[in-house]
């Protein structure tokens, strides 16, 4: 057998890998490299030769209030969205993880936004929350004042976070339900017989068992929070006055609408690096804690 394998040519392996490698190289790695290159130029998208400007684009980032604000919004989304989705998802999972008809319906109800395009979800909530929207129509026709859900900067950010959680915690919940099913029932039973309180059992039996899933869920949600775009586009259009622009929203607007490809690329590079670093850092940190908790 070993003889056979050695003498067999490497060609089939190459043929089988080539399409994926070429495609990935051409449409992922080359663009990424191109982004890095363009970030050191002042290219506007159509001039023949991009001019090198060194680190100027990166220096400009630190003083650009629009960029700093988008970074702030993205940061808020990352922290509140990640923690919120996981807290809501875990809470819901714990409440309805047992099989049964009612629980099955609750699961579907909490999860269904997952199958809807973020763009459509954004439009729907915009129709509900905007000044002439459903809720404000209802309020004003009942003699109340309209609420600035999308027209006041702070309210708008709050609305954005709310819609992110509304549409996002279902996925986290589904993954936590699967996680809870891996916790040995005998372990919980034993702790219960020993007289442990429900909360103690949750902290000391359930949580250590599902720790690896917590890691996966936190990282998954974090990465998705770093790229929120369509929801912003449809819900607030980045407004009011650019106050709810996320990093991804600013980058796409920046590069295409203002023909500032060099500057937009610098932002894209930073966002990619930060996302990768956060995901990697969080994974390493949590993996270490997983073993600590399990011990």
């Amino acid at each position: 057998m070993t003889m056979l394998r050695r003498t067999r040519s490497a060609l089939p392996g190459v043929v089988m890998s080539a399409p994926a490698i070429i495609m990935f190289g051409l449409l992922m790695i080359v663009p990424l490299a191109l982004s890095v290159y363009l970030s050191f130029t002042n290219w506007n998208g159509y001039s023949a030769h991009p001019m090198g400007v060194g680190l100027a684009n990166y220096r400009r980032l630190w003083h650009d209030p629009e960029v700093l604000h988008a970074a702030w919004v993205t940061g808020v989304l990352a922290v509140v969205g990640t923690i919120g989705c996981n807290a809501l998802g875990l809470g819901a999972a714990v409440a309805i993880s047992r099989p049964g008809k009612a629980n099955r319906i609750f699961r579907a109800v909490f999860f269904y936004p997952y199958v809807i395009s973020a763009l459509i979800i954004g439009f729907l909530w915009s129709a509900i929350l905007s000044n002439g929207g459903v809720i404000n129509n209802y309020l004003t026709s009942h003699g109340h004042e309209a609420l600035p859900f999308l027209s006041d900067p702070d309210w708008a950010l709050g609305s954005l976070i709310f819609v992110v959680l509304w549409s996002g915690f279902g996925l986290t919940m589904v993954l936590y339900i699967a996680a809870l099913q891996t916790v040995p029932a005998s372990l919980i039973e034993a702790a219960r017989i020993d007289g442990a309180s429900p909360w103690a059992i949750f902290r000391q039996v359930t949580m250590p068992s599902i720790a690896p899933f917590v890691t996966v869920n936190l990282v998954l949600v974090l990465v998705s929070m770093m790229r929120v775009y369509e929801l912003v586009l449809a819900l607030t259009g980045g407004g009011p006055a650019g106050q709810t622009q996320t990093a991804a929203y600013l980058i796409l607007g920046q590069s295409f609408q203002n023909n500032a490809l060099g500057y937009g690329s610098a932002q894209a590079v930073i966002l990619t690096v930060v996302t990768g670093a956060l995901a990697l850092g969080l994974t390493t940190l949590l993996r270490r804690r997983e073993t600590a908790v399990a011990a």
Partner: peptide, 28 residues
């Protein structure tokens, strides 16, 4: 290495990649 390379693609915010992708596609 190949597997790691592909999986690392998960962490690239893909809308952000669209800008340079446009130019690759234009070239092609």
């Amino acid at each position: 290495a190949l597997l790691l390379m592909f999986v690392a693609g998960t962490f690239i915010p893909n809308q952000v990649l669209l800008i340079p992708v446009v130019f690759v596609l234009k070239t092609l």
